[in-house]
Simulated assay, not measured.
Amino acid sequence: MPRRGAWAAAAGNERSSKLYDRAISEIRASLRLGHLVERLLERGIRTGVFQPTADNALLAKVLLSTWTEVGRWYHPGGHFSVPDLADEFAVLALRTAGAAAPISVERFAPA
């Protein structure tokens, strides 16, 4: 990956440098989130909450992709309200991670 200074010089302006910095920041945040999800999956398997269903790194990528893509198709006032969609996604994520049935979203809801 080129260094910021070289990239900005090639692009020729300060705006490009700021865009580069933002892109790098978002990539780093995405990597941190991916590692966090992997650790949560590992902990769930270790404690018996989840049954291994796939490689944890792959499963983390699948879950993150699913969560980030919702912004492409979700529209307020559609079939799902935000709370209903969050509940559905929670159940799907738990099932994908191999959580034992039955899955109750209320079990995971904040008090």
Rank of each mutant, 00 (worst) to 15 (best):
M1T: 14
P2Q: 10
R3A: 13
R4H: 11
R4T: 11
A11V: 05
G12K: 05
R15A: 15
S16T: 03
S16H: 13
S16E: 13
S17Q: 13
L19S: 07
Y20T: 07
D21H: 10
D21A: 15
I24E: 14
I27P: 02
A29V: 07
L31V: 12
R39N: 07
L40A: 07
L41Q: 01
T47W: 00
V49E: 01
F50W: 00
F50T: 00
P52L: 03
P52T: 12
D55R: 05
N56E: 02
K61A: 14
V62L: 14
L64H: 09
S65K: 09
T66L: 14
T68R: 15
E69A: 15
V70Q: 10
G71P: 08
R72P: 02
R72L: 11
Y74S: 07
H75L: 09
P76T: 08
G77Y: 06
G77R: 08
H79F: 12
V82R: 06
D84T: 09
A86T: 10
D87Q: 08
V91L: 10
V91M: 09
L92E: 07
A93K: 03
T96H: 06
T96R: 13
A97F: 02
G98P: 02
A99K: 08
V105Q: 09
R107H: 13
A111N: 05
A111F: 02
